[in-house]
């Protein structure tokens, strides 16, 4: 089954030459996740291996409609292809976690919480790419698309936090736990709240907003991988 994942790595690299290969990469990763789901009998979104695959597939899939709007901008597709290949390689480094889920994780609230979180992380990543493109060659389309990607991601991330809070209340009797993951999640949410409000001010529009969009993805990566690997938390990932 890992062959599907390894093939998706190749597909993302080939997408550097023919952009249609990105579709193949997404389909291979979705097929891999479906196989794992049927094998495990649960949503395969526990631990770094599965979550990185899901995050990569989402980022590549979300880049497709945005890529169509960025007609003629090869750099966008290239950055997405290279980063998708790199994240797939990272996923291959980690062992898949095949153990059964503890009873508290077997709930709609947990599954939706995780799915929405990684979808939003992926969109924040796409937004960061637009930020980079804007800095390279300032054009209002890249900045507008960055804003749109952030707005949708922010909505998904907020929903993920709400679903996580409901799940935590049902599972642990509280909707808030004092752990670094919760705190970094709030940092991320406040940071993008800042971005969305700052953009309303003339001074922040354009370059500063693009920089914020890129910095935000740094916060996303630290919240996702940094906190989970370096700090003690209620979240395994």
């Amino acid at each position: 089954m890992q062959i599907l994942l390894a093939s998706s790595f190749g597909a993302y690299l080939f997408a550097l030459f023919r952009k249609e290969f990105i579709y193949a990469g997404v389909l291979l990763q979705l097929a891999y996740l479906l196989f794992r789901a049927s094998e495990l009998g649960r949503l395969p979104l526990v631990g770094p291996h599965d979550t990185i695959v899901f995050f990569t597939a989402c980022a590549a899939a979300f880049s497709l409609p945005f890529g169509r709007l960025m007609k003629g901008e090869k750099a966008f597709g290239n950055i997405i292809s290279v980063s998708s290949a790199l994240f797939t390689a990272l996923a291959l480094v980690y062992e898949p976690r095949n153990f059964p889920l503890p009873p508290v994780l077997k709930t709609f609230w947990f599954e939706t919480h995780v799915v929405l979180a990684f979808m939003s992380y992926a969109l924040f990543g796409v937004a960061a790419v637009f930020g980079y493109l804007y800095l390279k060659a300032p054009q209002s389309l890249a900045e507008t698309l960055q804003y749109k990607a952030v707005l949708i991601a922010y909505c998904l991330f907020t929903l993920s936090m709400i679903f996580g809070g409901i799940w935590a209340y049902l599972a642990w009797g509280t909707y808030w736990l004092w752990t670094p993951k919760e705190l970094w999640t709030s940092i991320l949410w406040i940071f993008y709240s800042f971005y969305l409000h700052a953009r309303l001010r003339q001074w922040w529009a354009g370059r500063p907003a693009a920089v914020l969009g890129i910095a935000g993805f740094g916060v996303v990566m630290f919240t996702y991988l940094g906190v989970s690997l370096l700090m003690k938390s209620s979240h395994s990932f």
Binding site: W178, P180, W184, I190, S193, F194, H197
Partner: peptide
């Protein structure tokens, strides 16, 4: 004012995330 306050909260939370453990 909102922007400054959001920035200050971000900074305080980052400090807290390292102090809390």
């Amino acid at each position: 004012t909102s922007l400054w306050l959001l920035l200050i909260i971000t900074a305080l939370f980052i400090a807290g995330a390292f102090i809390m453990p």
